[in-house]
Amino acid sequence: MDNLTRLAVSATLHCLTGCAIGEVLGMVIGTAFGLSNAVTIVLAIVLAFFFGYSLTIRPVLRSGVPVKAAIGVALAADTVSIAVMELVDNGMLLVIPGAMAAGLADGLFWVSLAASLLVAAVVTVPVNRWMISRGRGHAVVHQYHQGHEGHESHHGVETGGTA
């Protein structure tokens, strides 16, 4: 696996963490309260974006970047990745027979959710790879994760500018 692909996998796993927290929480809340499929999916998506952005903003703020700029970095770094992940994840949940009707105690609920997140991550890796290769997506945040060491990632992939 080349350095760019490793960086894309790392970015995707970062994004998957925030998406999974929000997605699982949204699906659990929606299912527990008997919300409609549409409301449950909207809640899961909103929470996925919230947690995805939050996981990016925290280290950027710790590096001394002002809040407004940190929000901009998170939006640039994560929006496309989270959107692709959520589209695939929720699309799968809608097409897996019985997934959206399954209860919290039903294995189908958890297996469907895990499978949909796994497929979403696999689909998102090439998207992140393409964006990082052009200095976009997670490429914009790596300088903050490394304490302002410049634009080269810890994987040795040049992330400043477009390729």
Results as ranks from 00 to 15, higher is better:
residue 66 P to Y: 01
residue 72 G to W: 07
residue 66 P to H: 01
residue 65 V to G: 13
residue 82 I to P: 00
residue 64 G to F: 12
residue 97 P to T: 05
residue 68 K to L: 15
residue 94 L to H: 10
residue 84 V to D: 00
residue 94 L to Y: 10
residue 66 P to S: 06
residue 96 I to D: 09
residue 86 E to F: 00
residue 73 V to R: 03
residue 67 V to N: 11
residue 87 L to G: 08
residue 82 I to T: 05
residue 63 S to H: 10
residue 95 V to A: 08
residue 93 L to N: 00
residue 91 G to Y: 01
residue 85 M to S: 02
residue 88 V to W: 03
residue 80 V to T: 15
residue 62 R to C: 07
residue 73 V to L: 11
residue 74 A to N: 02
residue 89 D to E: 13
residue 62 R to L: 12
residue 87 L to H: 02
residue 94 L to K: 11
residue 82 I to R: 00
residue 62 R to D: 06
residue 90 N to D: 12
residue 66 P to Q: 01
residue 81 S to H: 04
residue 96 I to E: 06
residue 90 N to F: 07
residue 70 A to D: 09
residue 74 A to D: 03
residue 85 M to H: 02
residue 71 I to H: 05
residue 89 D to L: 05
residue 86 E to G: 05
residue 70 A to I: 12
residue 68 K to H: 13
residue 65 V to C: 10
residue 96 I to C: 07
residue 78 D to R: 08
residue 66 P to V: 02
residue 90 N to K: 05
residue 84 V to A: 02
residue 69 A to M: 09
residue 98 G to Y: 03
residue 96 I to A: 05
residue 98 G to S: 08
residue 65 V to F: 10
residue 75 L to T: 13
residue 75 L to A: 14
residue 94 L to Q: 14
residue 63 S to R: 07
residue 87 L to T: 15
residue 74 A to S: 14
residue 77 A to N: 05
residue 84 V to C: 07
residue 92 M to T: 03
residue 97 P to A: 04
residue 62 R to Y: 09
residue 76 A to K: 10
residue 93 L to P: 00
residue 75 L to K: 05
residue 81 S to W: 03
residue 72 G to Y: 05
residue 64 G to R: 09
residue 67 V to S: 13
residue 68 K to T: 15
residue 82 I to Y: 02
residue 93 L to E: 00
residue 71 I to K: 02
residue 62 R to K: 14
residue 83 A to F: 14
residue 62 R to M: 12
residue 62 R to Q: 13
residue 80 V to F: 09
residue 93 L to I: 06
residue 83 A to D: 06
residue 76 A to D: 11
residue 97 P to E: 03
residue 65 V to A: 10
residue 85 M to I: 04
residue 91 G to C: 05
residue 90 N to H: 14
residue 63 S to I: 10
residue 88 V to M: 08
residue 70 A to L: 11
residue 74 A to H: 03
residue 78 D to K: 08
residue 64 G to I: 12
residue 69 A to K: 13
residue 85 M to Y: 03
residue 70 A to C: 11
residue 88 V to I: 15
residue 78 D to Y: 02
residue 66 P to W: 00
residue 62 R to G: 10
residue 65 V to Y: 11
residue 63 S to Q: 10
residue 79 T to K: 00
